[in-house]
Every structure is written in C-alpha cells, then in structure tokens.
Nucleic acid binder design. Structure first.
Lengths: 182, 182
DNA sequence: CACTTTGTAGACAGACCAGTCTATCTATAT
DNA sequence: ATATAGATAGACTGGTCTGTCTACAAAGTG
C-alpha cells in the first residue's frame, strides 16, 4: 500500500476514531496526525462522514479478516468459536482498547446517518453469520439461535472488558460459549 | 417531586442523553426543552458534566430499581433471571430505545472524566452483583462466573437489539441464560 | 417594608468546528 | 520545455459550543 495522502488519512482516521469515537475527533486533529494538508482531505473525500465511512469500512473488513483467519486455523467448529473469543482477548490487551469500534460508532451516529448505520448493521450481521455457520457445522439443532447467542456473548464480552478494563468478561463469555455448544 | 427548575433539568437531561448521548446534546437544547433559563442550570450544577453525573446517577438507580422489582416478583432465582431479560425486551420496545445508556456513555466519555467512568463501572458492577447473587441462590457451582456470563449476555442483548432494531438478540440472550442455568 | 431566594432574559467571550478558497509548489509525463 | 495533476499552507466563513455576566422580576419571610 503506497504512502499516499489518502491512505495516511484513512489509517489515521481508523486509529483516532477507534481510540476516541467519531464525534470526538475533529478533522484538524486528523490532518495534523496524518501530516496532510486540509485540502488533501477534501480532494479525496467529500466530507468528514465520507472519510468516516471509508475508515470504518476498512476497520470492519480487517476485523472480519481476523475472525476468518482464526476460523481457518482451527481444527473444528467448536475450537474455531473459542478461537474467536481468544481473538477478543488479544484485542482487549492493547492499551488503547476501547471496546468494539462499531458498537461505539452506533452510540455516536444520529438516526439520519443512514450509511453509517447500515455499515454497523452489516458488520454485526457478518459476524453473526460466521457464528451461525460454525454452529451449523458443529451440529447445533438451531444454529441461527446459537449464532445469535454467540454474538450477544461477543458484544457483551468486548463491552464489558472495555468498561472494566479487564479481560474477565471475555473469559466468562468464552466459557459460556463452550457451555452453549455442549 | 416538586416541579423545580433543578428537577426539570435533570429529567430533561435524562431523556435527551438517553436518546442521543452526552456529547450529542448541548446545554442550549437542554434548557430550551426544560423551559429554564441558562443561569438556572449553572446555579444548580457546576457544569454540564456535573448535570450529566446527576442525570446518569438517577438513570442508573432507576434501572437497578426496575431490576430489583423484577427479582422481587419472581418465584425463584431462575425465573428472576429470565424476568430481567424480559425487562430488557420491554425497554427495547420503546420507540426511542437506543441501547443501554451507560454503555453509550462509555463510548462518549474521555479517559479524564473519572467521575463518569466510575459511575459506569459502578452501574455494571451493581447489575453483575445481582446476577451473581441469583446464580448463587440458584445453586450454581461458580456463581461469580455465571454472573459474569449473564452480564455479558445482558449487555450484548441490549446492544444487539439497538443495532438491529429488533428484539431477536434479547430473545436469544434470554434462551442462552436459561441454558447456562441448567 | 426590607431582604433573601430563586428564577428569567439575553448579551457576550473564547474556543472549536466543518468546509471553502486562493495561491504556491513539485513531480511526472508528454 | 511545458502542461497537468496532486499536494501544501493558511486565511476565512458561518456556525456551534460551554460558560460568564448583568440587570431584572416574582415570591416568600423576617
């Protein structure tokens, strides 16, 4: 990936938005941190929301890629599901961890920001579909229900770990996932 | 409760902060909706953060009171836990439902707002303690772990319902709670 | 009546915000 | 050599934000 102004902007936006949230980061800070001129932002993106859409899209894709990589490495569906929760544990170990950035984004978006709302829904649906698929292969009688249960545990684990500043909620959610698969 | 300016401010702040989040509501809107003069805010509260602290404290207490009422009405620990998830379902039916206001607050607070951060932690610890107590009375071998699992389901349920605009995540979390208690 | 409390209306300061515009610079490709 | 495309710095507009200040009004209490 070349070091273009556009890429520096997107990467910086991902980092700052993840750390503090969409509405708590101004474009002045973004262009300063990205070491880019103000007009380079508006030549590459229509608006701050447009940059946010690009940044959160990339963020979502990377998170899904990490989940898919964890699934691929696992020997069976059950260990794949547990590996996904281990991934949450790794994320939570970063000092700047502030929970799931997409959940935080949901708390920052207004109802009229349809594109961002759709992005959040799409991301959560994608994670849910992976859980459902794994539950199905694992032989659950109602894989859709189990998938939804696992997603609730996942979201609750990341949220709880962020609030408490501890990975105990993730460990608990992981064990609950294992119990649900028995 | 008398109709003082202070009470109108607190109630209005609770409503607006719950609907849109701390940083998305300005004091101009609050004083307009509360039908109160600007100085009545600053005569009763030191700052916007001070008003927020009062509003979210009351909000947290009301949520805990509702949980305690649901517990009291239930015949046994298991049905008490399920009743708490039914409470989530009722909350999610409100047209202005936007998920757990304390989780949203966590997404809006900066690291230097210690009072608000402590309030969020305290609230989640209080909910967790109720789950732990119920798990204990229900005879779980590791009630602290079960309590943490139930809290993760609760947080994930409210978050999921808010994002999807549907109570399916709450129903799934409720069924997962029932499974964990078996 | 005098005094205090509580509230009101609105101007104002100082900071920050997103987004526009201009003028200049630089590299590359023709 | 020149044209083009991308980048830069920074002024500027119009708006919003929190918080302060002043001057005034109503209402209860001694």
């Amino acid at each position: 990936m070349p070091e273009t102004a556009k890429n520096r902007l997107t990467e910086t936006a991902i980092r700052l938005f993840t750390e503090r949230g969409l509405t708590q980061v101004g474009i002045n800070e973004i262009i300063r941190e990205a070491d880019v001129a103000r007009m380079s932002l508006y030549n590459n993106f229509r608006s701050k929301d447009d940059l946010a859409h690009a940044a959160y899209t990339m963020l979502s894709q990377r998170r899904l890629d990490a989940i898919d990589a964890a699934i691929k490495q696992a020997a069976d569906p059950q260990s794949a599901i547990l590996a996904i929760f281990d991934l949450a544990g790794e994320l939570a170990c970063a000092p700047s961890f502030r929970g799931c950035a997409l959940i935080a984004l949901a708390a920052h978006t207004q109802l009229d920001q349809r594109d961002l709302t759709a992005l959040i829904r799409h991301h959560k649906a994608a994670v849910r579909d992976r859980f459902i698929q794994l539950a199905k292969v694992h032989g659950q009688t109602d894989p859709v229900l189990t998938g939804r249960q696992l997603l609730a545990l996942w979201d609750g684990a990341l949220t709880g770990a962020s609030i408490e500043g501890d990975i105990a909620p993730i460990a608990a959610a992981r064990s609950a996932a294992a119990q649900l698969l028995r």
